[in-house]
Design a binder for these strands. Structure first.
Lengths: 132, 132
DNA sequence: TATACATCCTGTAGCCGCTACAGAAGCAAG
DNA sequence: CTTGCTTCTGTAGCGGCTACAGGATGTATA
C-alpha cells in the first residue's frame, strides 16, 4: 500500500487528477490511513494506468467508464469493446482528415508569404470577402 | 446596419459567440439602437468572418488578437504574420503526427478483437502491466 | 388595436478534463 | 524541535464557447 505520490509516479496520472477521478467516481474511493491519507494497492494502480492509457488513446471519460464496467463483468463482451473502439477510431479518422485539410490550407497561406513586404497575402486572404 | 441575427448568418458566427467576442474585446462594442440592440455594418461583419476563418484554421484567440492588431497597423508586417502562421503550422503538424500514431495504435487494438469471444484482447492489452 | 410570435437583451451557470491554488495538517530526518 | 516534504479539503480557473432564465422590444397578422 502506497501513498498517492507513489501511485501517481507509478501510474503516470497526476496527483490532482487522481483525486479528481476519485471525486468523479471513475476510480473507487481509496483506502485511508487513520489520519485520512489515501492508500493504493497494485490493483488500484493498475486501474489508474488503464484510465491513463485510454485517455492517451483519446477515449472520453464516459467511454472509459463503460470500458471499466465491461472489464468488471466476468468475461468482458469483446463485441461491445470492439464496437466502442471502432466508434472512437472513426472519430479519430475524421479528426485526422479535418486536421490534414487544415494543414494544407494553412501551409498554402504561409507559403504565399514573403518576408520583407508590407502587404501580407495571408492576412488579405483571411480578410477577403470570398470564402476560404 | 443589421441586427445581430443577420450578422450571425452572414459571418457564420453564432449569436452567443458574437456577444462573447464583444465581452472579451475581440471585436469592438457594437453600435446600438436607442433600445440597446446591437447593429453591425459591413466592416464589423468582415471582422467577424476574419475571426471565424482563423478559428476554423485552429488559431487560438490570443493569436487572433495579434493578427487583428497586425492587420490594423497600416501595412501589416508580413514577416510577423508569417511567423505566427508557421508557428501554428508546426503545432498542427505535431498534432497530426500524434493523431496518426494514435490512429495506428487504436486500429491495431481493434483489429485484434474478434466478436463472439468473451476474453477481449483489447481490454487485456489496456489492463496489462507492460507499457503500451 | 390586439395579439401572437420572433428576436433581442443581460447575467449567470455549465460543458470537458483537468490544473492550480490556499490554508491546514501529517510525517520523517537531522 | 525544527525543517521541509507530502498530503488533505475545498474552491476557482483554464479555453472557447453554449445554454439557459427572465424580461424587453419589434413585426406581422386578425
Amino acid at each position: 500500500m502506497r501513498p498517492i505520490g507513489a501511485a501517481s509516479t507509478m501510474s503516470g496520472v497526476n496527483i490532482e487528477t487522481i483525486r479528481y477521478y476519485e471525486r468523479e467516481g471513475i476510480v473507487p474511493r481509496a483506502e485511508r490511513t487513520p489520519s485520512g491519507r489515501r492508500l493504493y494497492g497494485d490493483a488500484d494502480i493498475a486501474r489508474l494506468r488503464f484510465v491513463k492509457r485510454c485517455r492517451d488513446l483519446g477515449f472520453p471519460i464516459p467511454d472509459i467508464r463503460t470500458l471499466l464496467d465491461l472489464s468488471a463483468g466476468n468475461g468482458a463482451p469483446c463485441a461491445d469493446v470492439k464496437a466502442l473502439g471502432e466508434r472512437h477510431l472513426r472519430g479519430v479518422r475524421r479528426k485526422l482528415d479535418e486536421l490534414g485539410k487544415l494543414e494544407r490550407a494553412l501551409a498554402e497561406l504561409v507559403r504565399r508569404c514573403d518576408a520583407g513586404r508590407t502587404d501580407c497575402p495571408m492576412l488579405e486572404r483571411l480578410l477577403a470577402d470570398s470564402d476560404v
